[in-house]
Design a protein around this nucleic acid. Structure first.
Lengths: 352, 352
DNA sequence: TGCATCTATCATAGCGCTACGATGAACTCG
DNA sequence: CGAGTTCATCGTAGCGCTATGATAGATGCA
């Protein structure tokens, strides 16, 4: 209708706000074209020092902040890595996410976080929105996912790293360790300490498949290793907390009166068991030996100090970052190098 | 040069890959225009049931995943909330972030995470990249930021929530509690228990301003409350761990031989102190009363159970989410309602 | 001096989507 | 029965940036 009349040469005819300082503004002030500014931002060496200085000055004068959303769209790859963990409240994953975030941030990558709460459907929804960001990579926890999740990921063509578990076929890449082996290590250690009535105390194993695998590795090793060994697996349906550990120990004592060794699926549970023994006056390790998992903050300092299996969430984070960065820099890991075993270490302390 | 000759009607003349299933593809298959698809995605009720069904079918046939990067650019507001915490390894922040993530995810908002590691410069860099995503909101920890950070945030016009601290002037909104008050509560509790030689055990207080404020609130209350009260603040330069707690307790005993009460800036430190007392055969609370902070997982179950101050990271997360969502839905909180005091609760248990 | 080779810079076409305004068709009602 | 209203749908101009190829100048070499 109106052709943009009157005084203002810039009638706000169309579209939204135009507050933001854009690359155009910087270019105008620095007396260069927008492309040069863009080039300077991505590859400063390709721009003459004079122009570069001018641009830098303009950027700081205007307080320009590049719009990564626009950049991501134009470049068809946003500088984002999507991480999906069961829960960040879990110290294991907190450690991994923390390390991963730090490593990726150093390369200018942002971390987008999601919590699946151990639910496959929830994970699927998270993967869906994750992919909607055209991420540089997607990081998942474990190897168990819904069929739809796998399909989505495969179809997207985005690099995928599954962490904290190996021993199955990953969608793309995997960094972690074998959970059955962890369980087996714990069992072997207890058997070596001449324990014959042992139990695995776990929590939420109906959902936490990895904990369940540690339990079955434990049970199988116990069965294989020797005759006249009693072995039970006891599950607490709620979260893995110190309180759950106390409950589980009481329950184990009811089921196995001559209990002399336990492995816990988590150091929090082990700590709860320690406390419960102290309450009941059961000497550790004399009567019951305790092996934990996780080597958490308190495990070296508690009384008695806790024998535990350290999976190294830190190392997992570092390796995941390495794989992702390698992928971004063009190297396509193939074959066996797509699966990295970070192993586990049994740290013997006073509780066994 | 070449005009796009030969067999292929779609020579890859210009630009990048065009693999992705776009809204155009969906529109084509569903026999509607792209705008209708977009409308359907954002407001299904505005589209006729017939067209909607057709579109839904097309989406699932093609496995279409909308590109939020493009959407964010077009709408000038990406569906992202940037959260910057000192460290996710800290159980407090893990809890808050977890809750916040869950609440925001329910409204279709993604969380982008950054760790400042208690560094103001690092925080500034994080804020800069955070703003580069044109986020729907930015969430920071605490009220202490570099001048440049504040300027950046103010200039951006993005809603900002500072959490885990109130008692100063926020950039925009704040949700948290008063740290000096927490310290004072701890001091009052110890004094009420007739303790007269008390100490505050903290870690990393040169960087963790909030812990430092708890300490000074503690010291001031002790000074104010009564004469002939000895009060020391002892700092461990490293991270707040159980081990640091043991060290700090030993140090406190050296400095104050007749020590009879301590407040710890963190339950991990308190647990370390508990363990150290147990090792040295010091009865708790008879000889030394212990107050913690955080009400962590183990605090109710340890021996003796820990008197502690609960700040409720959960509640903070919920309130932050509420503020953000209100802002997105157009309500602009003003005045006092921009600052929410979540308070703190002292939970008395066996350690005092 | 003439022509090929660099180098620094630029113009421009999208990236995939949303929001705006417009267009008909269907419906209402005096 | 025609003017006004509502409703579903559409066409299209950007959002701010990057990547591509083009264009001048500067330089090299015969």
């Amino acid at each position: 209708m109106d052709t943009g009349s009157s005084l203002q040469n810039r009638v706000p005819r169309k579209r939204r706000k135009m507050q933001r300082v854009t690359m155009m503004d910087v270019a105008r002030l620095a007396q260069v074209s927008p492309s040069t500014v863009s080039l300077y931002l991505r590859k400063p060496s390709a721009v003459s020092p004079a122009a570069g200085q001018e641009i830098a000055r303009a950027i700081s004068t205007l307080g320009y902040v590049p719009n990564l959303v626009a950049g991501g769209l134009a470049a068809a790859s946003s500088k984002v890595v999507s991480i999906i963990v069961p829960s960040i409240r879990n110290a294991f994953f907190a450690e991994t996410v923390s390390t991963l975030q730090a490593e990726l941030a150093a390369e200018g990558l942002q971390v987008i976080l999601g919590h699946s709460e151990y639910g496959e459907d929830q994970e699927e929804a998270l993967v869906r929105t994750a992919l909607a960001w055209a991420p540089a990579a997607v990081v998942l926890t474990g190897l168990s996912h819904s069929a739809e999740t796998r399909k989505l990921l495969q179809a997207s063509g985005v690099p995928v790293v599954e962490m904290w578990e190996i021993g199955g076929e990953p969608v793309d890449m995997a960094v972690g360790f074998s959970h059955p082996h962890v369980g087996a290590s714990a069992a072997r250690h207890l058997l070596a300490k001449r324990r014959r009535s042992i139990a695995f105390l776990g929590a939420r194993m109906q959902e936490d498949h990895r904990a369940a695998k540690r339990a079955s590795g434990f049970a199988e090793e116990a069965k294989r290793a020797a005759e006249h060994v009693t072995c039970e697996v006891i599950n607490h349906p709620g979260a893995a907390t110190v309180e759950a550990g106390s409950l589980l120990l009481s329950r184990a004592l009811q089921q196995i009166p001559d209990l002399d060794g336990i492995a816990c699926s988590n150091d929090l549970i082990a700590l709860g068991a320690l406390f419960e023994c102290q309450r009941q006056g059961i000497p550790i390790p004399d009567t019951i030996a305790v092996v934990g998992f996780g080597d958490l903050d308190f495990s070296a300092s508690c009384i008695p100090s806790l024998t535990t299996i350290r999976p190294s969430g830190d190392l997992i984070g570092k390796e995941v970052a390495r794989l992702i960065l390698a992928g971004i820099h063009g190297e396509q890991p193939a074959g066996a190098s797509r699966i990295i075993d970070t192993g586990h270490v049994l740290i013997e302390r006073r509780s066994t």
